[in-house]
Amino acid sequence: MDSFTGLHRAGDPLLLPNAWDHACARALAARGFRAVGTTSLGVAAAAGLPDGAAATREQTLRLALVLGSEPFWLSVDAEDGFSDDPQEVARFAQELYAVGAVGINLEDGLGPAGRHAAKIAAVKAAVPGLFVNARTDTHWLGDGDLPETLRRLDAYQQAGADGVFVPGLTDPDRISALVGALDVPLNVLYSPTGPALDRLTDLGVRRVSLGSLLYRRALGAALDAVADIRSGRPPRGTTPSYGEVRALSGADGPGAPGGKVRPPAPCPPARPW
């Protein structure tokens, strides 16, 4: 099936790179990635705002508006939905879907599992076609308790989540245990010190996200380049030309193969800008 959901395959997981602006997303699509996510850290840092503090609702929606019409599947990192009210989260999900997003990532931040499940249920009721990736932070912010992780993930899949996400989970045995216990695709965050992509594939993971890694690597590359120049050396690494970067904003610039086909959002709300 040629759909975003269909990209979550056992034996051939979705490798999802995460962008923070239009040029980055188009460049990734030009490298053959049919789906691109956004990174909340990159969006927040680029705007001078804190990540994970519900401060970037407008910036997140604006980026979705820019990327949603591009010829790749777009999944949006929406922190916790920018509200504790499930109906407010559902309205935000409708806005994302209306501008072209096909997926949303919602994190529990170790808040009440029941509240997060209610958000998931509200989003699925309002926008059934939106792929909800429900994240639990038991391994990211907590102590990695496996029974608690399973309890939360089960609540989220029962609420209608299309996939579940456990950033910070790198132990192969725990990954395998979760895969065996879940009815929906497991998403893990790639770690340079964790299992490689082929190992994650063997374990049954069906989605591997890069999170803020590319943004942090880009920032590191900028610092390395200026250090090289200051030291009298030409900067190392890949440097796209001015023309190549400019082309990324053009209507005939590089894109991903294939297109997106999905029904329009029900009763799209007015945009808040």
Rank of each mutant, 00 (worst) to 15 (best):
G255K: 00
L219K: 00
A247C: 04
P235T: 08
L219Q: 13
A221K: 03
L248M: 05
A221E: 10
G258Y: 03
L248R: 03
R230H: 10
R230C: 00
D252K: 07
G220H: 14
P240V: 06
L248Q: 04
L248H: 01
T238N: 13
V245Y: 03
G259M: 01
V245D: 03
A222W: 01
A225N: 01
G237N: 02
G243E: 15
G259A: 08
G259Y: 08
A251W: 14
A225H: 10
Y242N: 08
S231E: 10
D224G: 01
G259V: 01
V245F: 03
P240N: 07
D228W: 08
A256I: 00
R236V: 12
P257T: 12
L248V: 00
L219I: 15
A251L: 15
S231D: 14
A251D: 15
G232F: 11
G250V: 13
K260Y: 12
S241Q: 09
A227V: 06
D224I: 05
Y242W: 11
R233I: 09
G258S: 07
Y242G: 06
D228E: 09
G237E: 07
S249C: 05
I229P: 02
P254M: 11
R236N: 12
G253L: 03
D252N: 11
G255D: 09
D252W: 12
P254R: 11
R230A: 14
S241R: 01
G253M: 07
V226A: 07
Y242H: 02
S241V: 05
R230V: 10
R246I: 01
A247D: 12
G255Q: 04
P254D: 11
G255H: 09
